[in-house]
């Protein structure tokens, strides 16, 4: 099955205006908006779709507190759609929608959609750094830092993290029914999962939690590199948003991260430069801890310089 990754996340939200503004300030492009809905895209066409929470066309959420209503995968071809429909049709209802996509519930109660991927190929440089001893990467006379750039845009929808009451059952569904594989595991927490048509370390991470918590821990888009994550996160905070964790760099997956609170009843992350693994990779296992979670952890500071007018204690204390 050529499941490429996440194409779209559909939310039903009680405060549509707040969520719209949040996604715009995060860097997504508004591609459709009306009084009751909106679609916000990354550079490759992957998206977050918003509806008002009381929209009757939305699938139900798994729990009252969860605003995510549907997780839509992009697949490479119609054969994959047919194979998924046949496999899931063995023990559950599989609906074919007017647009040719299919939808079915997973074993936790999250509604899943599968469609021919909307992803547009991107032809963009990533973050390029030069280092002594390595061939020149970023050309001579080109600039690494661009402070005047009006907006930093996420490139593609990266991953989602679910709270699930039964990790083994939830994992088995993705692994045995859809061909995902575990790339790494936090013992007693859950697995990082990679779909069969994707090299990213994970598009899903599952966290075991009580049934009443079933829902989303966070979702995130990939940015162009660590500078974009940190610069965009810094700008986000200065627009008034509340950081939760980061910036830092994870150990499992190696992705740079910065997590923020949100009006989506989950955290929203900015991430970059996740490890990519193929079938040669053997999954690691580790107990979760601060040391196992990140190589280092930084925090926001206001811009500052050492000179006239600098507060005696820097900007840490007033």
């Amino acid at each position: 099955m050529k499941i490429i990754g996440l194409d779209s996340l559909v939310f039903g939200v009680p405060d549509l205006e707040a969520c719209r503004q949040y996604l715009r300030d995060y860097g997504l492009e508004t591609v459709a908006e009306d009084d009751n809905s909106g679609c916000y895209e990354a550079l490759d066409g992957t998206s977050v779709v918003l509806f008002r929470a009381d929209n009757p066309s939305l699938p139900a959420a798994p729990t009252a507190g969860c605003m995510l209503r549907k997780t839509i995968f992009g697949v490479a071809d119609t054969d994959t759609l047919s194979a998924i429909a046949e496999e899931l049709g063995k023990d559950r209802e599989v609906k074919v929608l007017d647009d040719g996509s299919i939808e079915a519930l997973d074993d936790t109660g999250f509604m899943l959609g599968f469609q021919l991927t909307v992803r547009r190929p991107l032809d963009l440089a990533g973050e390029i750094s030069n280092a002594p001893g390595a061939a020149v990467q970023r050309p001579i006379n080109s600039l690494a830092v661009n402070n005047s750039k009006a907006r930093i845009q996420p490139r593609t929808l990266s991953h989602i993290v679910y709270f699930v009451p039964d990790v083994a059952k939830a994992e088995a569904f993705y692994v045995e029914r859809l061909g995902f594989r575990c790339t790494d595991r936090f013992i007693g927490v859950g697995p990082f999962l990679q779909p069969p048509g994707c090299l990213d370390h994970h598009t899903h991470f599952l966290i075991g939690a009580p049934a009443f918590m079933t829902g989303v821990e966070h979702f995130t888009f990939h940015f162009g590199g660590p500078t974009e994550v940190i610069q965009n996160g810094h700008n986000f905070i200065e627009k008034g948003y509340q950081a939760f964790w980061g910036p830092g760099r994870h150990v499992f997956g190696s992705n740079w991260f910065w997590y923020f609170n949100s009006p989506f009843a989950c955290h929203v992350e900015m991430d970059a430069d996740m490890d990519m693994f193929d079938l040669e990779w053997s999954a690691r296992e580790a107990p979760i801890s601060a040391d196992a979670s990140q190589a280092f952890l930084l925090g926001y500071r206001q811009r500052w310089f050492p000179g006239p007018g600098a507060p005696v204690n820097g900007d840490y204390e007033g």
């Binding site: 009680p14 707040a18 605003m67 918590m213 821990e217 939760f244 609170n261 009006p263 955290h267």
Partner: peptide, 17 residues
């Protein structure tokens, strides 16, 4: 922004508590 959308409850915007 410490309240939910309707203003009826204090809300933690980490996970919507």
């Amino acid at each position: 922004a410490y309240l939910n959308a309707s203003g009826s409850h204090v809300c933690c915007h980490a996970h919507g508590a």
